[in-house]
Design a protein around this nucleic acid. Structure first.
Lengths: 181, 181
DNA sequence: AATATATGAATGAACG
DNA sequence: CGTTCATTCATATATT
């Protein structure tokens, strides 16, 4: 971020004999502008958010909804620290045991039972149990995908590891910006 | 990016005892963000132009050299092409507002309108809008049920205890802040 | 402390 | 529409 002014500001362009930029300069400028662009995207979004907020509350009343967090939150400032559930060892063992012998499809009633059982070993909620099984299954599957590639199957490129095309539909109907005003 | 706080005139937000902004601070922040947003739009456009020129001059095929993403790599920002739509804050607020009064099932035409409106705040497709409303409604309902048949996602307010589950975040700015109708 | 990894939680998209 | 999957985000933990 050091040099945008130096390049784009061109304070000494009057002595520049050749107005044409070299490719190197060009690349440099592009890089720096890109860096700023990244930051500025957030600024723009921030601005539009504020505009929306102002529209929502007519003539915004401060102290009611416009907290500092609400404004700054999406820029990356995490001012609210949310701690997450951490399973105890006993809970983990039970969960693992259930996961191994069980199926990857925990029904709701089963979740309740498991939660009841695990709550004897520490604070836990059904949501925690549900999430745990979801993550456990998903990550097991993914690990198997990346792990056993030696079956002569396709080898994914390292860049985009989409692993499946089925989710690649990516509806693109927003191509025309519908330039209403 | 953290310089933004400095820009907003709020360098010590971490020690801020009261997160509510005064109206004065709010106005100043909005002004400055507006100014930056204007400048940054030009920067982004500038960058796009440069990239196009570069590609034309050197016969680069897009995606091969000097794409925005490739150039952004050095910043460390994750500008990797996002395959999954992520609503911007402004879009979220609008969606929440519509959801509040819209009763959840927008017809096809309504979806189109909403999509058109939201595309002013970022790329979006009608499918995105449709999915968002579907998810929003389903998850809201599930949260209210607190557990019935099924084994899907879980309600969050089930076993909330004083220890964990303080996932308060700052949802007060999501959309249902003002008690307007 | 700074970085890397593991993993709980959140959510867009898809399935039936 | 309800449920499930896949991906991403954020934090706790491990490693240097």
């Amino acid at each position: 971020i050091r040099g945008l002014a130096g390049v784009a500001g061109h304070p000494t362009c009057d002595t520049m004999p050749e107005p044409i930029m070299t490719e190197e300069q060009m690349v440099m400028l592009a890089k720096q502008i890109s860096a700023y662009g990244s930051i500025c995207k957030q600024l723009i979004e921030m601005h539009s958010t504020i505009v929306v907020q102002q529209n929502v509350l007519h003539g915004f009343t401060p102290g009611q909804a416009l907290t500092f967090n609400s404004v700054m939150g999406f820029v990356g400032h995490k001012m609210t620290t949310r701690q997450r559930w951490t399973p105890s060892q006993a809970q983990l063992q039970i969960l693992e045991k259930i996961f191994e012998k069980g199926k990857g499809t925990p029904c709701k009633q089963r979740i309740k039972e498991i939660t009841a059982q695990l709550s004897q070993h520490g604070h836990i909620s059904e949501t925690n149990v549900y999430n745990w099984f979801q993550n456990r299954r998903a990550r097991t599957k993914r690990k198997h995908q990346t792990g056993l590639t030696g079956s002569g199957e396709y080898e994914m490129d390292n860049l985009v590891d989409s692993s499946n095309e089925k989710k690649a539909k990516f509806d693109e109907s927003s191509g025309q910006e519908t330039s209403l005003t």
